[in-house]
Design a protein around this nucleic acid. Structure first.
Lengths: 145, 145
DNA sequence: ATATAGAATGAGAATCGTTACAGATTTGTT
DNA sequence: AACAAATCTGTAACGATTCTCATTCTATAT
């Protein structure tokens, strides 16, 4: 089990939260780093196999979420997890209204700047202090089209 | 039970889908029209009381969603419903990272146009057919600030 | 190296929100 | 009133998630 750069960053973050970077947690991080978008516990279980039992998987996700290493997304009554933005980079979401799959999409800097301008404007007209944002685009994915 | 303008619009929409606008369905619509943001089945049950049993409430929400009268919103493993955008108006969401509350926010037309341009651009660079969108702004709400 | 304390694990039971089922009731039509 | 279809409702079933607790592991002190 090689220690990647990602591993090092996760380990450091977990250390701040005084929890260990165990092999089960490593397996989940590894799995999440290999897929495109958020994945449910069941989907992750498919990937990691018997090495991480379902009950441990759920607990692992809770620990990782708590430490800010992964972030949950909810759709169709089920939670899907992905690496937090400081690990995966800022991105937006394409949500398929047919199959529920969520794909990440990073947009060109020029567009991103325009999104940020809008978010700033929203902060100005509301009593809300914005710290992050995501554009959720709903529609039909290539597979369901 | 007076028939409001909202009732008439909902009734027409349901008629298109060949379902009736019964008193239970009316009660749910009424409840949703009186609150600020999305509400879960349990929360709605609190409002409508015994007049709509929980199992009926769930089925009612399914019927209304099917007809496009209400729209679900997922967070923390539970579905919250609100009136569809053609009834409540297009809006975005302010998600408080502290208390979890989601507030609706409608933005000025000039900003909305810019959001739509960005969504269109995203559709162009991906193989995704966008039908709707929502800007999810994360941050701290006035109460938690 | 070994002992020890705290952290982490794993199998199964329990819980929660939600859906499916089936019989009873209501509605519109004739 | 009589009928067929739509709707309702209590209960059972279900899937996703959380909890429990006995066991295993790990870091640290000795």
């Amino acid at each position: 089990m090689p220690t990647t750069n990602l591993d090092r960053r996760v380990e450091a973050r977990l250390a701040e939260h005084e929890v260990r970077y165990t092999s089960g947690r490593k397996a989940v991080i590894q799995a999440l780093s290999e897929v495109e978008g958020p994945r449910s516990a069941a989907e992750l279980s498919e990937i990691v196999g018997d090495s991480v039992p379902l009950s441990s998987l759920y607990r692992t996700l809770a620990v990782l979420e708590d430490a800010g290493v992964v972030a949950p997304h909810f759709s169709k009554n089920l939670a899907r997890y992905e690496l937090a933005e400081w690990l995966a980079g800022h991105h937006h979401h394409l949500v398929c209204i047919d199959c529920g799959t969520i794909d990440d999409i990073a947009i060109p800097e020029t567009l991103e700047v325009r999104v940020e301008e809008i978010v700033t404007a929203i902060g100005d007209i509301s009593k809300f202090r914005a710290s992050n944002h995501a554009l959720e685009v709903e529609g039909t994915c290539a597979r369901c089209a």
